[in-house]
Simulated assay, not measured.
Amino acid sequence: MYKFTNRNLHRDFAYFYVGLIIAFSFSGIILNHRQDWYPMDYAYESEEVSLAMVTNTSDFSKEQIESFSKDWDVEYDGHRVRDNTLRVYYKNNVILDVDMSTGEGVLEHKRKVPFIGHTMFLHKSTNSFWIWYSDIFGAAMLLIAITGILIPNGKNGFKSRGWKFAVAGILFPLLFLILYA
């Protein structure tokens, strides 16, 4: 017969979610440093390209882009212009970056980095099932945290000294939000 105690709930939920805790922790750290290193995908094939472009415009149509892309066997999926660079997204994870002042660019075929890229995909997913599962995971993390602080008793318990660490742990992100948000 299962006995519902803080220790048992804490232990069993932690066992169940340990894989997701590791995956989310790992991918969260990587996402924090994505400006330096973004392993969601990597270029396995690159080709330098030179395009004759209208350089005085940042307004490109789908048809214009498809016309200069016709020789590459790619299917248009969207584009954006930022800092004088045209980025074109094609299906099957192909990206073109072109310097609009020179027409020089790089066409890259990308693949997801094994394991790391997949954990990041889970971290950023907008699939409705995964969002619900992640919400349940968030509630489970609250349960793990609350049951975890209630397990110790005596001089190392929450009432004696644990609350001081908890307050410090809550104040740190609040202070960060106040100073930097």
Rank of each mutant, 00 (worst) to 15 (best):
P152H: 08
L174V: 13
L171K: 02
N156Q: 10
K164G: 03
G148E: 07
G162F: 07
F137I: 03
H118P: 02
W130R: 08
T126R: 10
L142A: 14
E108I: 02
F137H: 02
I146L: 12
H109K: 15
K164V: 12
F129R: 06
I151G: 10
Y133D: 01
I149S: 03
P152S: 09
F172H: 01
L174N: 05
G117I: 05
I149E: 04
V167T: 06
W163G: 05
M120W: 05
I136M: 07
G148Q: 07
I170W: 08
H109L: 04
G169R: 01
I149V: 13
I149F: 11
K155D: 09
H109Q: 10
H109W: 15
H109M: 07
S134C: 08
R161A: 09
G105V: 06
N153Y: 09
P114T: 03
E108R: 15
F158T: 04
G138Q: 06
G157T: 01
F129L: 14
L142S: 09
K159N: 12
K124V: 09
S134A: 11
W163D: 04
H123C: 05
K164Y: 04
A139Q: 02
F165R: 11
N127E: 09
G138A: 15
K110P: 02
A145H: 01
T147Y: 01
A166P: 00
I151N: 08
T126Y: 08
G157Q: 02
L122Y: 13
F158Q: 03
T147S: 10
T147A: 03
S128Y: 08
T147Q: 02
K124M: 12
T126M: 10
H123L: 03
G117F: 04
F129I: 11
T126F: 07
L150I: 06
G162I: 08
L150S: 09
E108D: 14
T119W: 15
D135T: 00
H109R: 15
M141K: 02
L171M: 12
A168D: 04
K124H: 12
L107M: 14
M120V: 12
A139T: 09
I131P: 00
V106G: 04
V113E: 03
I144Y: 04
P173F: 06
R111M: 11
I144E: 06
E104Q: 14
P173V: 07
S134P: 00
S128M: 12
M120Y: 08
